[in-house]
Simulated assay, not measured.
Amino acid sequence: LNGSWRASAGVSVAATAQNSAAFVVGASVRTADGQVRTITTVKPASGALSVFMDGPVLDGNLVGYPNKLSLVDAPTPLPAAPSDPIAEVTPPAIEPVQLVGVALSGAAFGPSILPGKHGTNYIYPAESYYKKYAEQGLKLVRLPFLWERIQPQLDTELDAAQLALLTRSLDFAQKHGVKVVLDMHNYYRYYREPIGSENVPIRSFANTWKLIAEKIGNHPALSGYGLMNEPNTKGLWPEAALAAAKEIRKVDRTNWIYVAGDRFSSAWHWPQSNTQLIADPWMRDPENRLIFEAHMYLDRDTSGLYTDKTETFAPDLGINRANPFVVWLR
């Protein structure tokens, strides 16, 4: 919250040379609300330093940006150069991740005709949609696309026409202040063959995401990468998710990575279907900027088809369906 960690006593400060020299383990700092704490750990993180201190969790409303964090003393004090003082630092403004938005379908239409023809079998949403939802306060778009269209042949360069369409979509979003999650809407398949099979190795899936990140990762409208929509793999997904996320991080250390869950990402079934998703410590490291993505449908079989038109719904059904995922996150 405002550059202050929610689960630990820590804040983020700009990773300047002065701050790196000053904020070291053992140094004492004074927070904006007057507390004096001792630094226990310092970790670099995407242009910032995560400074962790002893004591309970800090209140980001009191000590976070734009409040100041002051250096009280350091274990080995050195005189500061007159032109380069180290007195007070302001934690950088960390833009909160936007989690309320809308899915703009179109680019994943016509999955039975691959790669298909733009404007006939599928479309990319027009600028008017980004404008419309931005005016309604929905500043996040989940943009589905198909792997077979961005890369019609496995292990080759990305399709230039599709990249242009994706980039144009991001340009529309940027114009209207909207962030975009690129959602590979393939249900863990490539031309109907599962990822991890002999013809579609996991390394090919991971490398495709690396190529996408290389081409689009610097766009200011990008929120992050949705690795896969609703995988249903009976245990194969954790290896593929880890591989793809690591490949992205080789070229993009900033944008979020959205990690769906197995069994169609069902929030209700999440704990039993994703026992190995974070087995690797890399998937639990906050420095890797991962967001876990669950889906929830309220019909009886959780399919989202709502075939029984007479079905009724308890007022707290949504809470109960989401709860297993929330407990897992904690």
Rank of each mutant, 00 (worst) to 15 (best):
A7Q: 07
A9Y: 02
V11T: 07
A14Y: 04
A17K: 05
F23T: 05
V24M: 00
D33A: 12
D33Q: 09
R37Q: 02
T41H: 09
S50Y: 13
D54F: 08
P56C: 11
D59M: 11
N67W: 01
L69Q: 09
D73V: 08
A81W: 09
A87T: 10
V89Q: 10
P92F: 06
I94C: 04
E95H: 14
V102L: 04
A103G: 02
A108W: 11
L114D: 07
P125N: 03
A126P: 07
Y129R: 13
K132D: 13
Q136L: 15
G137E: 08
K139Q: 11
K139N: 12
R142C: 02
Q151C: 03
D155I: 13
T156K: 13
L165A: 15
M184W: 12
H185E: 02
N186T: 10
N186C: 15
Y187R: 08
Y187M: 09
R192G: 15
F205P: 09
A206H: 11
A206V: 13
K215Q: 15
I216S: 01
I216V: 07
G224D: 00
G226E: 03
P231Q: 00
K234Y: 13
K234A: 12
W237H: 03
E239A: 12
A241E: 04
A241I: 03
L242R: 02
A260P: 08
D262N: 14
F264N: 06
S266A: 12
W270G: 14
Q272N: 14
N274T: 13
P281T: 14
D285V: 09
P286R: 10
R289C: 09
L290C: 14
T302R: 11
T302I: 08
S303N: 09
D308V: 01
T310L: 00
I319A: 12
N320K: 15
